[in-house]
Design a binder for these strands. Structure first.
Lengths: 123, 123
DNA sequence: TTAGAAGCTTACAATTTTGTTAGAAATGGG
DNA sequence: CCCATTTCTAACAAAATTGTAAGCTTCTAA
């Protein structure tokens, strides 16, 4: 998330995989610890930095900021600055990202079903 | 992937998020560097360890082994051992995981579309 | 004048993930 | 006996991600 050593095998592999197919690309964009949660919160309405922070327990300023910036770069969220003091900044999903939300429903269903299977087999 | 310090904030946050919803749970299971690729290869037919290794450039024995073991634990793949020497082991998707493949199509489409948008905006 | 709000950033430390290299076990072939 | 094969594992090193603590800026209210 911070700096990366672009010549490392690690980074080369990451980039290679990112170009494999759309699925891998998508998952690469979504990979940060709190990204899905942030997107999920924003799927209901736009929110300010502090509002996001307050509705995501345990996230730190740094992580929130880092993730938002990356997602802005990746075209997942939009950042809207109001010329006020103290500053007011709102975040919202881009149009493209809204299509993603629909897919989550399926993944959500799958995830819950799979978890149920897993838990029943542990007995 | 290796050992984890179960009491760390890092791990606590991970676990918290894993229980948030089915989507987060699913993504947690899929999060390793090569996991999606492995599942993708297995979606066509079962494969032996070495076959997987040969069709995934750059993956190391260790990573392949680690990911397969985790995915077996997580009910994503099945491991079938043949009583032969030298050993023969085949991996295949579980039934549950096959349903996941269908979802990928949508994510793949979204990913490709989103990437196109991103690339066109960089100009 | 001191404090507080909002949205960040910086420096650093802890933790986790990934990669590298070597090698183990069991057996058949030469 | 020596080597190759297959499926891993162990020890270690490198790199990436995440977390912690503090501080910055600009104004307004107390």
């Amino acid at each position: 998330m911070g700096k990366r050593k672009i010549s490392s095998t690690n980074t080369k592999n990451r980039d290679y995989l990112k170009n494999e197919c759309g699925t891998m690309y998508a998952l690469t964009l979504l990979a940060g610890r709190w990204k899905m949660t942030i997107l999920h919160k924003l799927s209901k309405n736009e929110l300010r930095f502090t509002e996001l922070k307050n509705c995501i327990p345990n996230i730190s300023d740094r992580m929130l900021s880092l993730h938002l910036k990356e997602m802005e770069n990746d075209g997942l969220v939009e950042r809207i600055v109001f010329a006020e003091v103290p500053p007011k900044v709102e975040y919202k999903l881009t149009e493209s990202t809204q299509d993603l939300i629909a897919i989550w429903d399926k993944l959500d269903t799958w995830g819950n079903k799979h978890r149920a299977i897993q838990e029943s087999e542990i007995q």
